[in-house]
Structure formats: C-alpha cells, structure tokens
Design a protein around this nucleic acid. Structure first.
Lengths: 217, 217
DNA sequence: CGTATAATTAGACGAGCGTACAGTCAAACG
DNA sequence: CGTTTGACTGTACGCTCGTCTAATTATACG
C-alpha cells in the first residue's frame, strides 16, 4: 500500500497507560500524549479521531486483556480450584494495573462520564464470572451458602483493596520510601496474592477453618 | 469611603459552595463562578487574587463554621454527653455539607493539591477534639479502652459514611428518586443522626450493650 | 462643592486545550 | 517507470482558561 506503519496507535495507547493514572481522563492532554509517545500531534486525530474515542479504547484494551486471562483461569480445573485461579488472575491484574484502576475508580466516583460508563458496561461481565464460580462452589457444597453479592464483595475487596493501598503508597510517597517499598513487596508478590486467595476461600468455606483452602500450597 | 460594597466576595463564595460539589477544585471556572454569583469577572481578582486563594478561603470558611460548633458542643456537659453532642454536630455538619465534603475527599484521593493540603492541615485539629473526648470517656471508665485511632475511625465512619452515601443517591439519581429520597430522609434526619451517635457510643461502651448510650432518648 | 477612595466594569493578554486540514513522504502495484 | 495509497507532518482555528489593567462609578469626607 503505502508507507510502513510505526504502529503509532500502540505507542499512543502506551503513553495513555502511563499518563492516565496521574491525571485521570479529564486531565489527559492529547499534546502531552503525543509528546510522550514521540509522535506527531496530527497522528492522534488520524488514529483515534477524538480524545473520547482514545480513552474508550484505552480502557477497553486494558479490560479485554484481563478478561481473556480471567476466562481462561475460570474454565480450568474443577470446583474451587478454578475460583482460586480466577482470584489469582484478578489479584495479579489489580497489582499490575493498580495505579490505572485506582484512577479509574476515582474518575467514576468523581462523575467522569467515560469512567462511569465503562464500569457500568464491563464490571458486570467480569464479576459475573466470579459469581458463577462461587455459585458452583456453593452448589457442590464446598462453599458456605452466603448471599452471592456478599461473597463477591468480600473476595473482591480482600484481593484487590490491599493492592490499591500499596499502589497509593508507592505512587504518592505517603509513607517513607523504604517502608512503602517493603510493604508493597510483601503484599504484591504472586505468592502474597495466592495466599490472600486462599484466605478468601477459607473464609467462604463450607466447614470453617478447614475445607476449600490449602490445596496447592 | 467610596462605593458601597455589595459583599461580592460573599456572593462568590456562595456560588463556590454550589458549584464545587459538581466539579471539584480543578473543574471550577472563575468565569462560571462570577456568572453564577451575578458578578463581574474582574471582581474575582479584586477580592481573591487567584483561584487558589479562592478555593483556600472556600474550604476554610466551610471548616471554620463547623469547628466553632464542634468546640461549643465539646465543651458542654460532662462525660460522654459532650462526646454525644460533638458527634451530633459532626453528623449534622456532614449532612448539611455532604456533597461538598464528598467532593473534597474525591479531590484529595485524586491528588488535587489544594484538597490534600487542606485535609492535612485541618483534619487533625478536628479529630483531635473527638479523640480527647474519647480518651476522657475511657479515663472515666465509661468507654472501653480501645486504641484511640481505632475508636476514632469507628465513630467517624459510622456517623459520616451513611450521609455521603445518602448524598450520592440524592445528587446523582443512582436510584429512582422516590427510593433515594426516602432513604436519604430516613438516615439524614437529626433524629437518625442522634441515633447513630448513640449506636457508636454503645459500641464503645465499657459494659457492652448497656452503658454509655440511652441517656437522652 | 470638589476631591479622594474604594468598588465595579469592560476588555485584553497569553497559554493550553481539542480539533481539523492541506500538504509531504515512501512503499506498493500495474 | 509512474501512479496510487496510506502513513505521517506542520500548522492553524476557535475556544476556554486564569490573570491582569486601565477606565468608570458612586460614595464619604474635607
């Protein structure tokens, strides 16, 4: 056809992932995005049309990556093993994109339309997988019968919330650097995430303190 | 002296109190503030100099009102009565300025420097009063001996959090108007606030389920 | 009355923003 | 080869933003 593409759209989205956590959607500047990506301003309009469309694709890309992994984990293994794996996927995802996700939540709280619309459109899809796994576990008698929404809130909060706190500490130096770094490392490692998934499963287990957990440690 | 003042600064601050909850500090526009106040744009610079100074005075005014009432309540009556009164003052304040306070918290979460600086500078002063009352109650044996920070988090959360939720519902029509309106009314009345103050005191009472509460119902 | 003075007005400045568009370049194809 | 085509560039438009200044108004005082 014509000139070879440098995949400028990919570069811009990468810059977006880097800048969005600092500013939120409203604070993003297409000029700064282009500058960060080392790309001409005009390319922005060429590839994305409008800033809204860029933000939409930025968020969607983030989410689709996660969702593919989540479904993969959710379909593997029987019983609560799939749930454990799915929780680990969620945990690692929350860790790897904690700054971006935290800003997304803040945007939504603040009433930013893009963020609110995105969460409305996608969160159900994603929580639905976890909910289904929990209900499977309850049906098999491995998990206590609690209200699904309650169980959902519990596992989501127990897995993800610590990572947002860790990201807060790391990003904004609310604590002394050393302390924040150590804390973040302690609660953000793959092992720590897996451990929290076990905690959560134990908390939901049919027979308290025994049951579902401790299978693959 | 000269021309009579229309107290334009007061009008602008009033407009600020109305617009700040919708936009946060970053989203405030001095032009829209002036328009809302029915005032010439130039008056903004004449009375406040910069937007930052305006926001500073807006937040400080809000806080000073509350603090005066809080100290008054805290100094009246012995024992836990003063604590109960102070909690009611906090509750009514959180209700009457819930939208503004919620946005202030969101701004702080988002890293907005003005909001963060304001909270850093003032929250200790204000929580200090409650903390002192709690420690008094513990010293007199009327309140259980918990870590002060823990007790503080408990009472602050139990009094204020429901009001932020109510404000959210009211402001953004997250639920059907009827439902949200009824809910907000149920948890935002003076009586409901006083009841939650009693709940909180009972939760901290030295002898569970009896003690500190139920005095003035 | 006339003047000093504080309050108020209208307008302009430069900067940043999102967006748009005419032109340039290099590879692909007949 | 020449032309087509898609990727890329430079620049400009119109808007809103925070800030600032010179001129105007209306009051109070000597």
């Amino acid at each position: 056809m014509a000139r070879p593409s440098r995949n400028v759209d990919v570069l811009l989205l990468k810059a977006g992932r880097e800048l969005f956590p600092q500013t939120g959607a409203a604070g993003l500047s297409v000029r700064k995005l282009a500058e960060r990506a080392g790309v001409n301003l005009g390319m922005f309009h060429y590839h994305f049309g409008t800033k809204d469309e860029f933000v939409r694709r930025l968020l969607q890309q983030l989410y689709d990556d996660m969702f593919a992994n989540l479904e993969l984990a959710a379909s593997g293994g029987p019983g609560v093993d799939a749930l454990r794996a799915a929780l680990c996927v969620l945990g690692r995802f929350a860790r790897d994109h904690a700054s971006l996700l935290r800003r997304l939540l803040i945007d939504a709280l603040a009433g930013e339309p893009q963020a609110a619309a995105f969460l409305r459109a996608n969160v159900h899809r994603h929580l639905g997988v976890i909910r289904r796994l929990i209900e499977d576990g309850q049906r098999e008698g491995l998990l206590r019968k609690t209200a699904p929404a309650q169980a959902l809130a519990f596992v989501a909060g127990s897995i993800a919330a610590p990572l947002f706190v860790a990201a807060s500490l790391r990003d904004r130096a609310l604590a002394k650097p050393g302390v924040a770094g150590r804390f973040a490392k302690e609660i953000a490692s793959d092992a720590a995430i897996a451990e929290r998934a076990d905690f959560a499963l134990a908390g939901l287990a049919a027979t308290p303190a025994r049951a579902a957990g401790r299978r693959n440690r």
